[in-house]
């Protein structure tokens, strides 16, 4: 098991190294000089030169790459060209919204998907199965921004249970902040939960048809016991795979939902940074997201080994 963790950690570091090179190279070839963008069309050549010197853009490619990577390792993400403040501060401000939002949405996804996947598998072909399968079909089909707007109309405008958008900040207290994140989290979670419930159902149906479930029944377990003790954990492997992919999506893919609810999250930050050629912000946020995705996959890999003894490499 230890060896498995070590090799997984090694592959995590290697992936991060490759990702940093690719991201840096991509940003290098992107057209548009950030300095020209910042100073406007009529900038004096010597002003441009001075600013380039100040931002460190005149150093060689290798020098800039290494100073960026070493900065990252120390938590120093550089200074934003447009905001003129440390990128780490800007990102941290956004992360306190995006990360809880993603976690909230993920928790809702699991809370909805597990029962919604287990129920139809246990009662295959019955009313519960048909209802859940129909519901998840809708959940997958409806675009989440449209669903978000409908929720705003119902719960914020008509019923006035929630505010229509914005974020009061964590200073306002835990519950008001969570309340502000509730509608966006539901909007994000619903399609993901629909997908996950379907994966859960088919994975469970697969395992319920397997020989060891028949063995479990022959041992005297009831249908429910066989499902809980033997089928569920075996069905978890495909579910974990999807869950890992979904977390990365929830973290980075919330741009539209953040816009609908006026949430100053990571998605909006990267969108603005790209349009303003604030490449140092783009670079750092993309790196951060890549790190999040790779790290989540690392956690999923460890979870696989926890679930499935066949993956624990013998030492």
């Amino acid at each position: 098991m230890l060896r498995y963790i070590v090799t997984r950690t090694g592959s995590l570091c290697l992936s991060l190294l490759v990702a940093s090179v690719v991201i840096f190279a991509l940003i290098e070839v992107v057209p548009g000089d950030p300095v020209a963008f910042m100073l406007g069309l009529n900038a004096q050549p010597d002003t441009v030169a001075a600013l380039r010197e100040e931002l460190g853009l005149n150093a060689s490619v290798l020098e800039r790459y290494f100073s960026w990577v070493f900065g990252l390792l120390q938590g120093d993400l550089g200074t934003s060209y447009t905001y003129r403040s440390p990128v780490s501060e800007i990102v941290a401000e956004r992360l306190v919204i995006s990360l809880p939002l993603a976690a909230y949405a993920l928790a809702l996804t699991i809370l909805i998907a597990f029962p919604a996947g287990i129920l139809p598998a246990a009662y295959r072909g019955r009313a519960a199965d048909v209802a859940v399968m129909g519901g998840t079909q809708l959940g997958v089909a409806i675009p989440n921004f449209w669903f978000a707007m409908i929720m705003v109309m119902i719960f914020a405008i008509n019923l006035r249970w929630f505010s229509a958008g914005g974020f009061p900040g964590w200073e306002a207290g835990f519950f008001p902040a969570m309340k502000a994140l509730t509608l966006p989290a539901i909007a994000l979670a619903l399609p993901q939960a629909s997908i996950l419930a379907r994966v859960m159902r088919s994975a469970l149906l697969d395992t319920l048809g397997s020989d060891y479930i028949r063995t479990a029944r022959a041992k005297g377990l009831t249908k429910g016991q066989a499902l809980r003790r033997h089928a569920l954990r075996n069905a978890l492997i495909p579910v974990l795979t999807i869950l890992g992919l979904q977390f990365s999506f929830l973290l980075a893919g919330a741009i539209i939902i953040e816009n609908v609810f006026f949430l100053p999250g990571l998605g909006r930050l990267i969108f603005q940074a790209i349009s303003q050629r604030d490449l140092i912000v783009v670079e750092s946020v993309v790196m951060l997201l890549v790190f999040a995705v790779i790290f989540v996959n690392f956690i999923v890999d460890l979870a696989y080994a926890w679930v499935d003894p066949r993956l624990r490499v013998q030492t």
Binding site: Y212, R233, V307
Partner: peptide, 14 residues
Amino acid sequence: GMVFQEPMTALNPL
């Protein structure tokens, strides 16, 4: 008690 044909799949792998 019952014993089945396929010992490879009759046991829960986990």
